[in-house]
Design a protein around this nucleic acid. Structure first.
Length: 278
DNA sequence: AGCGGGACCTGTGGGC
DNA sequence: TGCCCACAGGTCCCGC
């Protein structure tokens, strides 16, 4: 489900609901949803939620007020179907609720923060900086695509693998998934099968510009909702209405009218225009 | 090195 | 209506 724009939207919409709340309880209903490197749920009790941010596809909730050794972040990977939202204190747990936090608001009232995840691929991690450094996925995460220039981007595109595979590799750049890889390659006019290392400087520049344009545009529309994704207020995104390539295999290209091709690259459904993308 | 395939899970939609 | 199959926004692991 959520790629960079969706996680960014969750971070933004969740913050007003949980800011300055103190965690009074944390229940993990599905043990496998807790990351293997995570500190125990009890270690979160008494900590205050100070911030929400995004790193790649990870949501990072900043925690303050702990003793030395206590977690200072709650890192959540929503994977395909994870959702975060708050509810009244008496709300019943859902069929797919994997973790729930009791939050004490600054005004003394109580609220629940739910982590629901139908497919249960998502993970939650109570971490210290030391723990994060031990997590290879975090340690090796590539740069933020909205914060780099072509001088950083171009050298990271190496080798004979398909450019689409490179974009999906979170070590190359963090936050791009199947939707935005297809959309950016379409906008840049580059075939997804092109060897990553074969792009000219000009093509790499075009691709980065397309990535940044598409990601910003999607963020401005609160992300894409195919099926499951909702922001913290329960709202769907709107960017799916703007798709040029993703999910449009066999339909006419919006630029040239040729029928879009559908194939698989690295196991992922891939749609592109054989006429516009070279 | 990188690819294909399978695993991890549950649900949905299409075809018959 | 019901069954079976394919497929889904992500990552990881294995064998080649």
């Amino acid at each position: 489900m959520p790629e960079l724009p969706e996680v960014e939207t969750v971070a933004r919409t969740l913050y007003p609901h949980i800011r300055d709340c103190v965690i009074s309880d944390m229940r993990v209903l599905r043990p496998a949803s807790l990351h293997e490197l995570s500190l125990k749920p009890e270690s979160a009790i008494g900590l205050r939620i100070a911030s929400t941010r995004r790193r790649g596809k990870l949501l990072v909730i900043g925690l303050e007020g702990g003793a030395p050794g206590a977690p200072d972040s709650l890192v959540i990977h929503l994977r395909m179907t994870g959702r975060l939202f708050t509810r009244e204190a008496n709300e019943a747990l859902g069929k797919h609720t994997r973790c729930v936090f009791n939050l004490a608001l600054p005004n003394g009232s109580e609220r629940l923060l739910f982590f629901d995840d139908t497919r249960a691929f998502g993970k939650i991690l109570l971490a210290t900086p030391t723990i994060l450094q031990r997590w290879s996925f975090w340690r090796e995460l590539g740069p933020e695509p909205l914060e780099i220039g072509v001088d950083t981007f171009a050298p990271r595109l190496r080798g004979a693998r398909a450019i689409k595979s490179a974009l999906l590799d979170q070590k190359v750049v963090a936050g791009i998934g199947n939707i935005y890889a297809d959309e950016a390659l379409f906008m840049a006019g580059l075939a997804p099968t092109r060897e990553a290392g074969s792009l000219s400087d000009q093509e790499a520049e075009r691709l980065l510009a397309a990535i940044q344009h598409i990601l910003k545009l999607s963020i401005s529309q609160c992300g894409s909702s195919i099926r499951d994704y909702r922001d913290a207020d329960g709202n769907a995104g709107a960017f799916q209405n703007t798709f040029q390539a993703y999910g449009r295999g066999g339909l006419p290209c919006k630029r040239c009218g040729a029928l879009l091709s559908k194939t698989r690259i690295t196991g992922r459904a891939t749609v592109f225009c054989p006429n516009c993308q070279k």
